[in-house]
Design a protein around this nucleic acid. Structure first.
Lengths: 141, 141
DNA sequence: TACATACCTGACTAAAATGGTCAAGTATAG
DNA sequence: CTATACTTGACCATTTTAGTCAGGTATGTA
């Protein structure tokens, strides 16, 4: 089980964005330079973030991205969901041949993964962008 | 972020094993048939479990595997560790070019992943094979 | 002793996911 | 009208996953 770097980049970029969008929109180019993430890759990620209305965009010179909500309203769940970084443990739906179809007869460990999933998600649901900003006040890059 | 099926199979197989090893060793062939997991794949998995002393093996006719500890002494952490199913969130060690080398200058989200990791691991450390056996008493396959 | 059973080992592979790059746009501020 | 910056979609190399396959080796039983 591992986290992909897409999810990590998304969070890094948004924290960066939250720090700098006070006045003007922030360009991906700036984020790319500051965080060391490929510009092209950032564009992919932000198109997803936009589709889920986590950020808004302005085109043209001086354009860029802005958060569409307040930092404390953006939870990690939202971010991960947007970039397809979902916590998926079991996919028993397909294995219907061997008893686990998610309905009547569950495989022996089915409940376990359900529990795990909600355990992880509860972590993501509590943490907001604001929390990350705060914990970075001291430990500033 | 997802769990691989190797980890899932390992847990399924061990629960199965725990249920049937009261008298004789359990052959992988039986587990394979009951759980619908390829025998060859099971062998790979059990060689790892054996290396970490979670199971013991007996060769020859009537041979098979037995747990080397009591079900309540086998935590999920142990199982996952054995089959290389480790929770790894960030690998910042290599990205040393951009500030995060895990030491002095951490990347903005470094602490976050550390927190996440221990949150997940605490779940795995609490759950033992015995817990799974119990919760399967009612919900028996 | 032979043979079937079951563990043991390592090489190999198809398919999917990951982590990007590249190319060709479109919109807009100045 | 031009530079900037978002937008879209195709493409690709590498790695990981989830196995398969082909050989073993050990051992209880007949």
């Amino acid at each position: 089980m591992k986290l992909t770097s897409r999810g990590r980049y998304a969070v890094m970029a948004l924290v960066d964005l939250a720090r700098f969008d006070n006045v003007n929109p922030v360009s991906l180019r700036d984020i790319s330079l500051r965080q060391g993430i490929s510009l092209d890759y950032l564009e992919q990620i932000f198109s997803k973030l936009k589709k889920d209305q986590i950020v808004k965009s302005t085109r043209g010179t001086q354009g860029g991205y802005v958060l569409s909500k307040k930092p404390n309203e953006i939870k990690l769940t939202n971010i991960f969901q947007a970039v397809d970084e979902k916590v998926k443990t079991v996919q028993c739906k397909k294995d219907s041949k061997k008893g686990c179809n998610g309905k009547a007869t569950k495989c022996i460990t089915h409940n376990l993964w359900d529990e795990l999933e909600s355990h992880i998600n509860s972590f993501f649901e509590k943490k907001s962008l604001e929390d990350l900003l705060k914990s970075n006040k001291e430990n500033r890059l």
